[in-house]
Simulated assay, not measured.
Amino acid sequence: MDDMMGESGEGPAYNLFVQKSAFERRWQQLLDRSTPYVYQRWTGTGILLTLFMIRIVLAEGWYIICYALGIYLLNMFLAFLTPKITPSMEMDNQETEMEEGPSLPSKADEEFKPFIRRLPEFKFWHAVTQATVIALVCSFFRIFDVPVFWPILLVYFIILFGITMRRQIKHMIKYKYIPFDLNKKSYTGGGGGIGGGHGSKGR
């Protein structure tokens, strides 16, 4: 009985599982170490996207893969721009609390509420990079080269991008939030106000 368990525990499937677990641990360690290197990470991803676009232009095919990648990146970008808790949800919660009765004051929280993204920067970068690598690999297999009239896909994507971003900008204006740090200065002098030195990074 023990011999059977030992043979089954040390078989090819078990060795493959061990190697897979070790690889996942090393990969996660590399991802954790790359977290602070924002510009370097996005530069590498930009190079991958450029290589993919060059591949599509030179090969004159795989337009459906390019379109699918564009739609996916647009969805990820919208999640990156959108706050995790929208102001409309906060207003609904406040109305519910007022209906249920008085609660403890939370003045400090109301004075400063950092912008927390629905999709953090690191996860956004990881999703974009992973999708770009998959699209680049798919562009080397003829089975994914579905014949389509690419100008229609391009026009449709431009229209979809315009409508989506217009809706997002209206949402930003309505609830008065900015998903980026636009030359915000940190106040290091006396006073130590609540607004000094706080950014809106949502990673």
Rank of each mutant, 00 (worst) to 15 (best):
E111G: 00
L49H: 09
E99G: 00
W62I: 04
Q40I: 08
K113N: 12
T82Q: 05
F115G: 02
E97K: 14
K84Y: 13
L74W: 09
L81I: 12
G44M: 02
T45W: 04
P83A: 05
K113C: 05
I64K: 02
G101K: 06
A79K: 13
Q94A: 14
P102Q: 08
D109L: 06
S34V: 01
P114S: 13
V38Q: 02
D109F: 05
F112A: 03
K84S: 08
A108V: 12
S106T: 12
P83Y: 02
A68W: 04
L51W: 11
T96Y: 05
L73V: 09
L74H: 08
F124C: 07
I85H: 07
Q94E: 14
V57Q: 12
P36D: 06
P120W: 10
A108Y: 09
E110G: 05
I116L: 06
R117I: 07
K84I: 02
E60G: 03
E90R: 14
E90N: 07
A59N: 13
S34K: 02
W125L: 00
N93R: 14
F124A: 01
T96A: 14
M91I: 15
Y67S: 09
G101M: 07
L49F: 11
F52Q: 01
K107I: 14
P102I: 10
T82N: 04
I47W: 07
F124R: 01
I116Q: 06
R117F: 04
R55K: 15
M89D: 10
